[in-house]
């Protein structure tokens, strides 16, 4: 594959918040991870992490988001992913459950949450193994 890769490379994918479109996120993630020479194990983990954060956004937002914006930051040896819905998180809702935290801790290096106007963005980072 190509070698055009800079620290500043950033790709945003905006999808309707529905199942068939999430495949596009996976495909994009796989392609970018392959650029970084991630292993097959890590690419599988990447998919799990994307599923998890997108799933949490859908589960905790109210009303249900109409779209998801997912931004991939391609570094020299790491891929960072930030996913945002377009509706606020439900009042008093914990974004990460203990279980989803366990999943993300196992497959990523560092998760973070940011919030503006009640809309939550969840991000995580995978470093090339």
């Amino acid at each position: 594959m190509g070698t055009i890769r800079r620290v500043s490379d950033q790709i945003t994918v905006r999808i309707p918040a529905s199942t068939p479109h999430v495949g596009l996120l996976r495909a994009t993630a796989s392609a970018l991870a392959a650029l970084l020479d991630f292993t097959y194990d890590q690419i599988s983990d990447l998919h799990l992490a994307i599923d998890e954060v997108c799933g949490r956004i859908l589960a905790t937002s109210n009303p249900r988001p109409s779209r998801l914006d997912v931004t991939f930051h391609v570094g020299d040896d790491a891929l960072s992913v930030e996913a945002c819905g377009d509706t606020p998180i439900r009042q008093g809702e914990e974004f990460f459950t203990t279980f989803s935290k366990a999943i993300l801790d196992a497959v990523t290096q560092g998760t973070a949450l940011s919030e503006s106007d009640g809309v939550v963005c969840a991000s995580f980072r995978l470093v090339k193994g």
Partner: peptide, 15 residues
Amino acid sequence: ALDSSHAYSLISLDA
């Protein structure tokens, strides 16, 4: 090919 193998397991975020 790898993505296609996952296509089915992508059960619904929404469903």
